[in-house]
């Protein structure tokens, strides 16, 4: 059996000044999963993504990414791990202006040790894969928002990382473009990439096979933790229908999807920090 791509055990992250962003989070993500991490602003989901992405180190706890013991690695080692293992997609794309889509994507491979010709070849292939084979020479300002995010996704997957982390990938897009981007992420997952998506869009969270809810630095729900709770989006959608706003929910919305899902759980609220069984996914 292949080891899980992500394995967090009792991970805490406190910032100087006493702010606790993560308070004993345990989470295991198996190879090939497509998982949503949802929660209001300040729930710690971004910190969790940074820890999974090795951009941030936990204050305590065990973090294993692709089998590597993250706290034990040096900064150089983590950089190398990110270069080979993890792809990032950001809400605001982070594309370089006045640089063609091809070179933006090829730039993502700069730290992989590949030669320029090979980088460009792979970049072209990645752009082809996200459906932008006809936009190689376009600069970001010549692309629509959805296309820009596709370029960013192409950059993240050009090096074929086993793990793709997306932070609000549709947050800056209209719903049609957002749907297209989600479809692309589903396709990438279908071809084997493990994908973690941070979102506070309920509809998007609901459309993913596994959903983890966060609040106050703890995991308050995990659709994979409770076998009695079917991993089906209709659940979330149904339970939220009466109060769901058309826009992404307010951070402090008491009818937060994760919260209401929890209350509907027959198994009760899972204890924060409980180790979820990844086998169930």
């Amino acid at each position: 059996m292949t080891p899980p791509t992500v394995s967090l055990v009792d991970v805490s992250r406190t910032y100087p000044g006493g702010v606790t962003a993560l308070a004993g989070v345990s989470l295991e993500i198996a190879r090939g999963e497509l998982i949503a991490i949802a929660g209001p602003s300040g729930s710690g989901k971004s910190t969790l993504l940074n820890v999974i992405g090795t951009l941030d180190r936990p204050t305590s706890g065990t973090v294993r990414i692709d089998g590597y013991d993250v706290p034990a690695l040096s900064d150089r080692g983590l950089s190398a791990l990110r270069a080979t293992t993890i792809g990032f997609v950001f809400q605001h794309f982070h594309l370089a202006d006045r640089v063609t889509a091809l070179d933006n994507v090829a730039g993502g491979l700069l730290y992989s040790g590949l030669g320029r010709a090979e980088r460009r070849r792979r970049a072209a292939a990645a752009l082809e894969r996200v459906g932008l084979g006809h936009r190689l020479d376009h600069e970001p300002h010549e692309l629509s928002g959805g296309e820009r995010q596709r370029v960013a996704i192409a950059r993240a997957v050009a090096g074929d990382p086993p793990l793709l982390l997306a932070d609000e990938p549709t947050g800056a897009l209209d719903s049609v473009s957002g749907a297209g981007v989600m479809e692309l992420l589903h396709d990438l997952n279908a071809s084997g990439t493990t994908i973690v998506i941070i979102t506070h869009d309920r509809e998007i969270a609901a459309s993913l096979p596994r959903r983890v809810g966060m609040r106050d630095g703890r995991i308050v729900s995990d659709s994979a933790a409770d076998p009695s709770h079917p991993s089906h989006p209709s659940d979330l959608t149904r339970s939220n229908q009466p109060t769901r706003p058309t826009d992404p929910s307010e951070p402090t919305d008491p009818s937060d999807p994760t919260g209401s899902t929890d209350s509907g759980d027959s198994g009760g609220r899972p204890a924060a920090g409980a180790v979820p069984g990844s086998e169930a996914a």
């Binding site: 080891p3 055990v9 065990t62 089998g67 590597y68 150089r76 080692g77 950089s79 190398a80």
Partner: peptide, 20 residues
């Protein structure tokens, strides 16, 4: 849990070419 795995050696970053 698969915590009993042996440690993997630390990955080494690739060198950037002078031209890059």
């Amino acid at each position: 849990m698969a915590a009993s795995r042996t440690e993997r050696p630390e990955p080494a970053p690739a060198r950037m070419r002078p031209r890059d």
